[in-house]
Write a protein that binds this DNA or RNA. Structure first.
Length: 501
RNA sequence: UCCUCGGUAGCUCAAUGGCAGAGCAUGCGGCUGUUAACCGCAGGGUUGCUGGUUCGAGUCCAGCCCGGGGAGCCA
């Protein structure tokens, strides 16, 4: 096959003839002109077929093309503002590879259920394309960040013999007639690997069998877990925020086009591209939640939703009145706006139901309670960058977390919370390095000590202070892309009730 | 598991308990350097399933199935 020319390198071929191979994204047809929007994986480009410039056979080929038909198009590359890529092809030849019949995803609007059933095809659309390229950039940034700092990537096993923290619900499998679980965290293995290499990170899938149906949950998601010997909590937090700032900076500088095509407001991201995120203790977080300022913020939220509702309803009534005598184009506009208003009204209704619950959860919070999703959202609303909350009550944290030497009730754990309501994207902390303390903790948590024999060896043979954290890839992608749901951040999401495609 | 909203044409959605509709998509015809192109015509329905109330059910009631959002739990 002749060498391909890709749409994202068309500027090199300006004025020359080139052959693009790809798929028909859309087609507009006239009497003697066909406008083809071709996509090839690197971008989209408008191709113009003028009946006067091509043979009858080529014209015939072009008119038979349908959405998502595969095709090779040859023509002259011309700079033109009217094309999405800045260049267009004045076509001289069209070679059809396959004509696609009845492609289900039209360039119109579709519902979530339909799109999820067609995820294998949905991935081809502009928006999903942009998200996957940003996901890739984030993955590349993570590897670059750690590799440049001397971290070794080592992966933890996916089959494990025991439930690590004893709390989560895990997927159980039959491992040659023995019970095995799909990993919920590679951390304990990460600790072993850090004792061999100093600084390591794992990058792999993680599984949770919890029946969570929310925009932040998947049953299978990817987690990055660095683990470092001779690192305390503060060094751990420094690393976490440097990594996050590095990721954000990379995406902002290298995926501008993709962010723009997602309509992502980058002003919020700009503030996160440099490290120095606010750090507050768990105790300060509780104080904030119980404060007068929080109560006022919630009251204001409630009032603004209550005001917005009648305004939207009035606008809706006016639009519906106008609809009858509106022209076609205006009708489409009105329908779009009406849909947006309905979605917003549902959100308002839900917020108004939830705000009293959030208020109760926040204002009645006691030291020792865990922070819920709404508490995290309320806290992050007071900042415009990610924040780190550290020093949690030891009782609500895992057995391996080291306690504050100055306060036995406090564990040296840290969570990073993303702004704009995206919630926890990092969870981690300093690990307990003392054998005797760990033995006590395992007993307190009533965990089977046999399963942790190898883990305890790490404390017997040259134990050192060490720390690490877990970064949730999909939540990070979701925040950076400004998405409403993590299901769009992974090619084939696995969620409650979703195993196809 | 619980709370909450929903399921009508291939898709997105309308329809006071009273003749099931529109736009898009598809097919045919027309028109245009078009940008979700536009204009005309046509085909397209077990209103998620089962039962009940009623002269009459897409609409009301009960149960079930499927989906959205949230709680708990978490990244």
């Amino acid at each position: 096959m002749k060498k391909n020319t890709y749409i994202n390198e068309l500027e090199k071929f300006a004025g020359q003839s080139a052959t693009l191979r790809g798929w028909v994204y859309n087609k507009r047809e006239g009497k003697s002109l066909i406008f083809l929007i071709l996509r090839d994986g690197t971008g989209t480009c408008q191709c113009i077929i003028n009946q006067q410039d091509v043979s009858d056979a080529v014209w015939q080929n072009a008119s038979e093309l349908t959405q998502e038909s595969s095709v090779a198009v040859t023509g002259k590359v011309i700079e033109d503002e009217r094309s999405s890529s800045g260049y267009e092809i004045h076509v001289t030849d069209v070679n059809v590879v396959q004509i696609a019949r009845d492609y289900p995803i039209t360039p119109k609007e579709h519902g979530v259920e339909f799109l999820m059933e067609n995820r294998h095809l949905w991935l081809r659309s502009q928006r999903q394309w942009a998200i996957m390229r940003i996901r890739n950039e984030i993955i590349f940034a993570i590897h670059t960040f750690f590799q440049e700092r001397g971290f070794i990537q080592m992966d933890a096993p996916i089959f494990t013999g025991n439930a690590v923290e004893g709390t989560s619900t895990l997927f159980e499998t039959n491992y040659f007639d023995q019970k095995a679980y799909l990993t919920q965290s590679g951390q304990l293995y990460g600790e072993a690997m850090a004792m061999a290499h100093g600084k390591i990170y794992t990058f792999g899938p993680t599984f949770r069998a919890e029946k969570s149906k929310t925009r932040r949950h998947l049953t299978e998601f990817w987690m990055i877990e660095p683990e470092m010997a001779y690192y305390d909590l503060e060094m751990n937090m420094d690393l976490a925020e440097e990594m996050m700032a590095f990721i954000v900076d990379r995406v902002l500088s290298r995926r501008e086009t993709e962010l723009a095509s997602l309509n992502r407001d980058t002003t919020a991201l700009e503030k996160a591209r440099k490290s120095g995120y606010p750090r507050i203790t768990y105790t300060q977080a509780i104080e904030r939640l119980k404060s007068d300022e929080m109560r006022i913020m919630l009251d204001e939220m409630e009032d603004s939703r209550k005001q917005e509702d009648p305004q939207l309803r009035q606008e809706m009534a006016e639009l519906e009145k106008e609809f009858g005598q509106a022209k076609k184009g205006r009708k489409l506009q009105i329908e779009k706006r009406l849909r947006d208003i309905r979605v917003r009204l549902e959100e308002i209704e839900e917020d108004l139901r939830n705000i009293p619950v959030w208020r109760k959860s926040a204002l009645e919070k006691q030291w020792g309670d865990d922070l819920g999703g709404s508490d995290e959202t309320l806290l992050t609303m007071q900042f415009d960058t990610p924040i780190m909350v550290y020093g949690y009550p030891a009782e609500i944290k895992a057995f391996y977390m080291k306690r504050d030497p100055d306060n036995d009730k406090v564990a040296l754990g840290v969570d990073m919370l993303a702004p704009e309501g995206y919630g926890e994207i990092i969870g981690g902390g300093q690990r307990e390095e003392s054998l005797d303390v760990l033995l006590d903790r395992i007993e307190e948590h009533e965990l089977p000590i046999e399963a942790f024999s190898w883990y305890l060896d790490l404390r017997k043979f040259g134990t050192v202070p060490h720390s690490g954290f877990g970064l949730g890839l999909e939540r990070t992608v979701s925040w950076i892309c400004g998405l409403k749901h993590v299901r769009e951040t992974i090619p084939f999401p696995r969620m409650l009730g979703r195993l196809y495609p």
